[in-house]
């Protein structure tokens, strides 16, 4: 199984690079798409090497971009994703408590918001990350669970949703 996934990904990457290399903001576009299509939603060292090689740019440039922007993951991501908005409106309406609740429910001991973009539970079940602002401030606090934005979140609702996720619902 893993080998076909990688092979498929290689093909994708070649295609992605060819398609975007002449566009404005090509490197961001290529890295964004490469991450999107990677099975564990991250940029591996091989991916970055490949991108640098095919674009004929220094690997340091690719690495510099990949580490600069918070959107890029350099570690494999969990099966599920929980994104807690840490924007001002969400903060004033208690998003820190939501973040801590999500971490503790997934058994994640600590998460240094200012140092890393995301943290994944040891069993690889889910990743928790924060985002500067979803722009959904009117409905704060906001949490995105597996790509779906949930507004006016409360700790009670979050607990229910995570229980459901754990049960596979």
């Amino acid at each position: 199984m893993p080998s076909t996934a990688v092979a498929q990904k290689d093909g994708d990457l070649k295609h992605i690079i060819l398609e975007n290399r002449d566009k404005q903001g090509y490197l961001l576009k290529i890295l964004e798409k490469a991450q999107e299509t990677s099975p564990k939603l991250y940029l591996s060292e091989e991916t970055m090497r490949e991108v640098a090689h095919r674009l004929d740019i220094p690997l340091t440039q690719v690495y510099s971009v990949a580490t600069f922007y918070s959107f890029f993951n350099l570690k494999p991501q969990g099966l599920h994703s929980i994104v807690v908005c840490r924007g001002t409106a969400c903060h004033t309406r208690g998003s820190l408590a939501l973040l801590n609740e999500a971490l503790s429910m997934l058994g994640i001991k600590s998460f240094k918001e200012e140092e890393e973009n995301s943290v994944t539970s040891l069993d690889g079940f889910a990743s928790v990350r924060t985002v500067a602002c979803f722009g959904q401030c009117a409905l704060a606090p906001v949490v995105m669970i597996d790509g779906e934005v949930k507004s006016r979140m409360t700790i009670g609702r979050l607990v229910t949703l995570l229980h459901k996720m754990k049960k596979g619902g």
Binding site: K23, G25, L28, K29, E32, F68, Y69, F71
Partner: peptide, 10 residues
């Protein structure tokens, strides 16, 4: 016009 999507940097 072309679109470029940023990647999360204020």
């Amino acid at each position: 016009i072309e679109i470029v999507t940023g990647a999360g940097a204020f």
